[in-house]
Design a protein around this nucleic acid. Structure first.
Length: 457
RNA sequence: GUGGCUGUAGCUCAGUUGGUUAGAGCAUUGGAUUGUGGUUCCAAGGGUCGGGGGUUCGAAUCCCCUCAGCCACCCCA
């Protein structure tokens, strides 16, 4: 009989324990920050009706996985088409439209996988199944909400010990105005942004070539944008920038909102040098309507953006008569993990077990089980040994799994009502009364967790 | 979606101009006289040479197709 080759679908991954343990640590740091800002949890189904997901952007529609039964018959085609969600923002908009009872402002966070049918590239932290960590505020058009999202992003990255990151800030309104100023009309907006966004990568000559390819009349773009960029950066000269776009309403409004968000975010604690006004940031061409932002790691430019978001005031209205203004961001968990891995700061951990209760001889099995139960009642993560194996094998397992303590109750210890406790890291072994074991170990473990020596991201 | 590179053991790779039973290191399992790991030594298990077809007396090696993986672009998290 032919075996089936065990494999995972391209662009998807298994998370083995040694990787998942530190990965979950990252998630809990993100979640803690979200909760500190007063966001409430939300989960939605992986599967949505196709019509919910499509129509936001042509490019995106091509990347949506549709679902069908493995053995369908004619009747199935009568069922509504369904698909895997592409992001968490669209399902959120659906939820807000669907449940009138939700409060305003509605602040929710959501940490769940999404699926996109594009070509995976692990080095760039790009997968077909990946986890997004979203935080969004709905029901207010105040720039303070945008600023809070920016501050939250910064706080998470700082908590994750990223040092060289930069949050780029711009505004879709500003870009629309700029496009109009440079090209003379509104028709080239999307192409204009896309070309401009490549500036970092291909330089001005390249951008001008791109303009040519797309038939964008942008002869004085270089001079104008260069000046604007000089007014931007981490200490933007908004007054100067305003002069450069004077007379264009959209650009002026956009600039004002950028300025408000910038200062509010700084007041909220975003460190100097981490937030920049960036006239060439052109992301989020789908449903964004106001301020937009993304984060890049300056050490890992090939990774693209670690986070991305912005204001999308029109999205809820695609599901409802109500027009609900909204802003938010997503933090890419897999990008974060990829970044930390490439920075060699993501250390694998094979086990979270704190103590292994060894099995010494058949006569001592009952005692070992009692000890494990006692340790577990004290809140320690304890494992027992199942088979009648030598100490060598049991210690070898503990070592391999990086379990720091082994408890032994052989005939000698049992006779005196004692146990031996070995610390595999320090190689110290102590013998103590059985009744003191749990309390003693709890103290030692606590002290270890507090020491600077203990690892942890 | 476009272009390029690569596919030999679980992992990293050797394999001479096509030539007998395809090798190494790491990992795994067992052992070095049975109360203690991380070092060392010995041994064992494990391979449709990605898959299919072709050329040849003979293919891991040459040709074609296909699949998979990686990289860049596109786009993004």
């Amino acid at each position: 009989m032919s075996r089936i080759e065990p494999r995972t679908f391209r662009g998807t991954r298994d998370f083995l324990p040694s990787e998942l343990i530190p990965r979950r640590r990252i998630v809990s740091i993100i979640e803690e920050a979200y909760r500190r800002y007063g966001f409430q949890p939300l989960e939605t189904p992986a599967i949505e009706y196709l019509e919910i997901l499509t129509g936001k952007s042509e490019e995106n529609d091509k990347l949506i996985y549709e679902i069908r039964r493995a053995r369908g018959d004619a009747e199935d085609s009568a069922e509504s088409a369904i698909a895997l969600r592409y992001d968490l923002t669209v399902p959120l908009a659906r939820v807000v439209a669907q449940y009138a009872e939700l409060p305003r402002p509605f602040k929710r966070y959501q940490i769940q996988p999404v699926w996109r049918a594009d070509r995976p590239q692990p080095r760039q932290g790009r997968y077909r199944e990946f986890v997004q960590c979203d935080a969004d505020i709905l029901g207010t058009d105040s720039p303070l909400a945008d600023a809070e999202i920016v501050a939250l992003t910064s706080e998470v990255l700082t908590a994750l010990k990223f040092e060289k990151y930069r949050i780029r800030l711009s505004s879709r309104k500003f870009l629309a105005g700029l496009s109009e100023l440079v090209t003379g009309n509104e028709t080239h907006f999307f192409d204009f942004c896309r070309c401009l966004d490549k500036l970092d990568k291909i330089g001005w000559d390249g951008v001008e070539q791109e303009f040519g390819k797309n038939n964008i009349p942008a002869k004085d773009a270089r001079a104008r944008v260069t000046e604007l960029m000089a007014s931007g950066g981490t200490e933007p000269d908004f007054a100067g920038a305003r002069k450069l776009v004077a007379g264009n309403g959209a650009a002026e409004v956009g600039l004002n909102e950028i300025e408000t968000v910038y200062h509010a975010a700084r007041d909220l604690g975003v460190p100097q040098g981490k937030l920049s006004f960036d006239a060439t940031l052109a992301r989020g061409l789908d449903y964004y309507t106001g301020p937009i932002f993304e984060t890049v790691s300056e050490e890992l430019p090939h990774l693209g953006s670690l986070t991305g978001g912005g204001r999308y005031d029109g999205l809820v209205a695609t599901f409802s008569k109500q027009n609900v203004p909204a802003t938010g961001t997503t933090i890419g968990l897999d990008r974060i993990q990829t970044a930390l891995t490439q920075l060699e700061r993501f250390k694998s951990e094979p086990s979270e077990t704190q103590v292994l209760v060894a099995r010494f001889d058949d006569a001592g099995v009952g005692k070992s089980l009692e000890l494990a139960a006692e340790l577990r009642r004290a809140g320690l993560r304890a494992e027992i040994w199942y088979d009648n194996d030598r100490m060598k094998k049991q210690f070898s397992y503990a070592d391999q799994q990086q379990i720091p303590f082994v408890v032994i109750a052989g005939p000698d210890e049992r006779e005196r009502g004692e146990v031996s406790l070995k610390n595999l890291r320090t190689q110290e072994q102590v013998t103590l009364a059985q009744s003191d074991l749990a309390a003693h170990l709890l103290n030692v473990v606590k002290a270890q967790a507090g020491s600077p020596d203990s690892s942890g991201n």
